[in-house]
Design a binder for these strands. Structure first.
Length: 904
RNA sequence: GGACGCUUAGCUCAGCUGGUUCAGAGCGCCGCCCUUACAAGGCGGAGGUCGUAGGUUCGAUCCCUACAGCGUCCACCA
């Protein structure tokens, strides 16, 4: 066995173990009828992305669950993969082309797409490579990409089925148009934010009269496309104008004045211009009133040929200025006021969205939403924390049709084919399209130019990755998956849509039992959705590139180790709360790793000392030579095991880390290891010592297993040193389950007395400035029924932990004259230190303690003095309070007595 | 406009079903110690009327109501 270094060196251990785990195939999952599956699909990161702390948190949590379940004997399967990220990826490649002085149009579609694939092959797995550094136990043999052959087949299949069902339709609608990307966006891809705009008040003359009306608009340039004016039908101010014609300034077009109760009479002047081609509400209004739709802005955001010549070709914002000038010059502009208001912007490039009238493809969502709502309401799919349920339900209740076409080249091309006569159909292949349309092979057939929204492949992820539409063994076994771990920001984009898709497309597919799936529990994509925290910097700001406040996780791993990062971030992330992160917080994880490392080092050194090279069987702990500390640590271990199990079951992952930290550092290292030293270095028989070493190693082994899901590398490394089992790995070793018989309240109480006495002695030392190296003597007075025997039988604990060289039991009458004292569980402690203690300090110490006890006693007496309390509170609570009262009273008396005994 | 979250020690936060010495942890701070696993460590200590005001209850950091401050999401009036 190699010597272990004094401090833990994570980089070396991590680089050694990850490839080893992969080569041994420890993360690979197979269909296994002997085992229950446990499945997670990764939220596929964009191929353009680089790893950030959000990924770290998200993937660490997934890894904790997967490793935990794997150790529990589940066939744990974590399917990794990446998303082609239509807009983002196309962006990146287009930027590269721009640098080369060319663009995608010069290249042509086919070459451009080839170029993107080349880019993807080089850079597309950056995140996936980086994730390995984190130690994630993904089944890499199952890695998928949303544009893989299989997934593309699934996309086409879904589109065609929805089309044939009438759930996909084509329509001319106002969509959110990004003039930079020149594509439509779904409603969810638009981010609304406040902006300082202006409100222009413009006079529109009424034809044939001297009358005119004033309307207010933030977008005067769209007036070129106005086709009506509109007021509320009940508005007396304008009623007389109903049916009249107004003249559109600058253009001279006649437009009707109409009435509609959409109008809010209290806003502005109460009459509004209507531009059906450039505003969603106006569009709907226009439909109701059969208004003409005049588009005046092109796909690049410039004024088109339908506007007066001197505006044509102007950028929409440039045109706005010109229109304002011209209106003013011609006397139509009444006033302009500052007007802060909300506008939508492209979530990727921040360009102001242009409501744009165009032909797009939509999915009718209402029929899909209905069952997806039900499974959540019925608790078949559960959110953690639960409050996201309401957010989900609200969205489902108000769902709108999903615009799925994107005017891009990178993505799944829409499988719709047009015949020369304009008829069209959706089909899995060109041949199928010809059959469906009745077109001969020699006739030209045109496929739709647009591609599908990226989420259109992502929403199929939990089954497309498993072979759907094929009826595969994997699909039967691993779907429904179990836990989805993702951020609340994509609950609509992704989570909700996956629920809809899984229900819709898995219906009737054979399930685990081979029978067609019908029940909701077999149709959902996953059972539990864990919503992760949002990572912020230490000032609470979102991590962002522009702020430069986003540390590179790879640097953090290099500096502190992957285990340290994993542990720290899960420790900091309570379920459902944001996390304020800064790199230096990882010191906590690093220090913890080092602590464990040294505990392991200590045990191994002593094992060698006591047992030589002999291998110890750690399959069970030795039941020989048990003393209080042993029974106590077994009790604590099993309690911790229970608590961890409960915390993980409730998705309270940071609780689990806190339990592990507390158990390993405070129970195991601070107390147990210190106590065990008394036996390693004591005069017990070699057999007894061997039993003690064996048990200590066994407990440590159990603790390592509990910790492994959180800190996989260091636990594997230490575990290997512990066991010498070259062929095995902690990755697939049983996760401990608690043995109730070891959880023993009485043992813990006895141990508590020992601990309290040691703490009291340490306090005396600290406050009296007694050197740690100085031995002390302890005299105790034990009341009737007190636990003095327990204390005396573990005198060696006091020797080691408090440097007590002599323990004597004395009579009340034999109290030492000059001594520091304390009262613990009714036992009086005296440390005779004539001439050495600082009387003033000791008096202060006792007075402080007296005050503390007095305060608590007062609290209890106030409670007990309240007749309502004694009458109404449960008996055991009252009884407990009485017991406490008595104990405090006794303590207080003794303390006062001892204070008095100190003299002046 | 609607929904939701947060407010506890100097800082960052736990505290889940009201009563356990319930007021905690980590960091920071003060004092002592390089005690043969660990100074990335050990021991001791200081520090909080649990945002404010009410209410429910024998009892409230915890449940309810209102308010204040911070934050998030959804919708949106030209």
């Amino acid at each position: 066995m190699p010597e272990l270094s004094k401090t833990y060196n994570p980089a070396e251990v991590e680089d050694r173990w990850y490839p080893e785990w992969e080569t041994r195939g420890l993360f690979h999952a197979k269909v296994n009828s002997e085992k229950k599956p446990y499945t997670i699909v990764i939220p596929p990161p964009n191929i353009t992305g680089i790893l950030h702390l959000g990924h770290i948190l998200n993937n660490t949590i997934q890894d904790v669950f997967v490793r935990w379940k794997r150790m529990q004997g589940f066939e744990a399967c974590w399917i990794p993969g990446t998303d082609h990220a239509g807009i983002a990826t196309q962006n990146v490649v287009e930027k590269a082309l721009a640098k080369e002085g060319t663009d995608r149009h010069k290249l042509g579609r086919e070459k451009f797409v080839k170029r993107v694939w080349e880019w993807k092959d080089i850079y597309g797995d950056t995140i996936i490579r980086q994730l390995r550094k984190l130690g994630v136990s993904c089944d890499w043999q199952r890695e998928r990409f949303t544009m893989d052959e299989g997934l593309s087949t699934a996309v086409r299949e879904v589109f065609v089925r929805l089309f044939d069902k009438g759930l996909v339709y084509r329509g001319k609608y106002i969509v959110n148009w990004c003039t930079f990307h020149r594509t439509a966006l779904s409603d969810d891809e638009v981010e609304h934010g406040q902006t300082n705009g202006k409100l222009y008040h413009i006079r529109y003359p009424i034809e044939g009269t001297k009358d005119s009306v004033v309307i207010a608009t933030t977008r005067p340039e769209t007036m070129l496309g106005d086709t009506a004016l509109c007021f509320h039908p009940k508005d007396e101010r304008y009623r007389h104008l109903n049916g009249k014609q107004a003249t559109l300034p600058l253009v001279g077009r006649r437009i009707p004045v109409i009435a509609d109760d959409y109008i809010d009479s209290s806003f502005g002047t109460g009459i509004m211009k209507v531009t059906p081609a450039h505003d969603t509400n106006d569009f709907l209004l226009g439909q109701r009133h059969n208004l003409q739709q005049i588009s005046v802005i092109n796909e690049a955001g410039q004024m088109n040929e339908l506007v007066p010549k001197h505006y044509e070709g102007l950028d929409r914002f440039e045109c706005r200025k010109r229109i304002a000038q011209d209106l003013e010059a011609q006397g139509f502009l009444v006033k302009v006021e500052e007007y802060p208001h909300n506008i939508g912007r492209c979530y990727r490039c921040n360009t102001i969205i242009e409501p744009y009238l165009s032909d797009q493809w939509f999915v009718r969502m209402k029929p899909l939403a209905k069952p997806a709502l039900k499974v959540v309401q019925d608790g078949v799919v559960r959110f953690h924390p639960d409050r996201w349920t309401k957010v989900y339900e609200h969205w489902m209740d108000n769902i709108r049709d999903w615009c799925i076409s994107r005017q891009l080249w990178w993505g799944h091309r829409i499988p719709v084919y047009y015949a020369p006569d304009g008829t069209y159909t959706a089909a899995r292949s060109e041949e199928e399209a010809r059959t469906k349309l009745g077109i001969a092979p020699e006739m030209p057939l045109r496929q739709d130019d647009d591609v599908l929204d990226t989420w259109f492949s992502a929403w199929l992820w939990p089954f497309s990755t498993l072979g759907w539409p094929g009826d595969t063994k994997d699909l039967r076994y691993f779907n429904p998956t179990d836990t989805l771990v993702t951020g609340p920001d994509i609950i609509f984009f992704w989570v909700a849509r996956m629920v809809m898709a899984n229900i819709e497309f898995m219906k009737g597919m054979p399930g685990r039992d081979g029978k067609p799936r019908q029940k909701d529990k077999d149709l959902v994509p996953f059972r539990d959705v864990y919503m992760t925290s949002i990572i912020r910097d230490d000032q609470g700001r979102k991590m962002s590139k522009s702020l430069g406040n986003s540390p590179d996780p790879i640097d953090v791993i290099r500096e502190y180790g992957a285990d340290a990062l994993r542990f720290t971030i899960t420790y900091l992330a309570p379920l459902g709360q944001d996390v304020l992160f800064s790199t230096d917080k990882c010191e906590m994880g690093r220090n913890f790793a080092n602590k464990i490392w040294n505990a392991g080092r200590f045990l191994l050194l002593n094992k060698k000392e006591i047992c030589g090279e002999e291998a110890l069987d750690l399959s069970a702990h030795s039941a020989e030579h048990l003393d209080l500390a042993d029974r106590w640590i077994l009790s604590r271990l099993n309690t911790a095991t229970d608590d961890i199990h409960n915390a993980l079951t409730k998705f309270q992952i940071n609780d689990a880390t806190k339990i592990l930290y507390g158990f390993l550092w405070h129970d195991f290292c601070d107390w147990y290891v210190e106590l065990v030293k008394t036996r390693f270095y004591g005069d017990e028989s070699p057999e007894a010592k061997k039993a003690v070493v064996q048990r200590a190693l066994w407990v440590f082994d159990q603790a390592l297993r509990l910790l492994h899901p959180f800190m996989p590398f260091i636990t594997e490394e230490l575990w290997q040193h512990l066991t010498d089992r070259k062929d095995a790995s902690i990755v697939r070793i049983n996760f401990p389950s608690s043995e109730k018989r070891h959880i023993d309240r009485k043992t813990e109480q006895d141990m508590e007395i020992v601990q309290n006495v040691i703490n009291a002695l340490r306090n005396i030392r600290g406050e009296n400035n007694i050197q740690p190296s100085r031995d002390i003597e302890l005299q105790i007075i034990v009341p009737k029924g007190g636990k003095g025997d327990t204390l005396q039988s573990y005198e060696r604990y006091l020797q080691k932990l408090a440097r007590v060289t002599k323990l004597t039991r004395i009579k009340n009458s034999a109290k030492p004259k000059v001594a520091a004292s304390a009262v613990v569980n009714g036992i009086e402690l005296f440390v005779p230190l004539e001439g050495l203690i600082d009387m003033g300090a000791e008096r202060n110490r006792l007075e402080k303690e007296i005050q503390r006890i007095q305060q608590m006693l007062e609290g209890i007496e106030k409670k007990l003095g309240n007749p309502q309390f004694t009458a109404r509170a449960p008996k055991d609570v009252v009884e407990k309070e009485r017991e406490k009262q008595n104990a405090f009273k006794v303590n207080l008396e003794k303390l006062k007595e001892n204070l008095g005994g100190l003299g002046k």
